[in-house]
């Protein structure tokens, strides 16, 4: 790819008007726009089982894509798609989506559960899931406003052991009841 770029730069004057002769490697937009067919424009998802990527932590996206590619994180299509991209591509798409503005969703939420979840978040999760889960930190993803069905699918992957829970998370989760986990997910889904 680098080689093509330098070729392009040398010949840029001659090529400026030609659509067909040469082209630069895919831009971050070119790579990332394609993801929106499933994840929504600029990564803001309208599909209940599909995560929002807009404003997601860059490291969390790169980490997820690498784990999809290696098979460390279970998936349906993501593992297959990740194999078509390089680490540089992961970096480009993660940078793009991390820069998009926060995507707020309107969901039907159980208010009592969300209230209980808010207290649980503060007491157990807030050291990593910053700002009520609105801010990603390193490989900790943004949780706020993700669709409840998506959050539940991921939690059940954690519980089954198919998706490996980070140690710090496992320490907290082992002390929470299924009802409390459910309340936490309602809380994250409710944050706008």
């Amino acid at each position: 790819m680098k080689k093509r770029w330098s070729g392009w730069t040398l010949a840029a004057g001659a090529l400026a008007l030609s659509a067909t002769a040469f082209a630069a490697p895919p831009s971050p937009e070119m790579i990332s726009f394609a993801c929106a067919g499933c994840h929504g424009t600029n990564g803001g998802s309208a599909g209940l089982t599909m995560p929002t990527l807009a404003s997601q932590s860059k490291t969390a996206i790169v980490d997820a894509m690498k784990k999809f590619k290696s098979g460390d994180r279970p998936s349906t299509v993501m593992g297959r798609l990740a194999k078509g991209y390089s680490d540089a591509d992961f970096d480009a798409m993660a940078t793009f989506f991390s820069k998009q503005k926060f995507h707020s969703t309107a969901q039907t939420i159980d208010a009592a559960k969300a209230k209980q979840g808010a207290d649980l978040q503060e007491a157990n999760c807030s050291r990593c899931h910053l700002e009520d889960g609105k801010e990603g930190k390193d490989d900790t993803p943004v949780m706020a406003s993700q669709w409840l069905p998506y959050l539940k699918m991921q939690m059940s992957l954690y519980e089954s052991g198919k998706r490996k829970m980070p140690e710090k998370m496992a320490e907290k989760v082992k002390n929470l009841s299924p009802q409390e986990i459910d309340a936490l997910l309602h809380f994250y889904a409710s944050v706008k």
Binding site: A36, C38, H39, G40, A46, L48, M50, M153
Partner: peptide
């Protein structure tokens, strides 16, 4: 799972 993802695909691509 893919059935559920398929439905979300339709929702997202038509919303786009």
């Amino acid at each position: 799972d893919e059935h559920a993802y398929g439905e979300s695909w339709l929702k997202n691509i038509l919303t786009e």
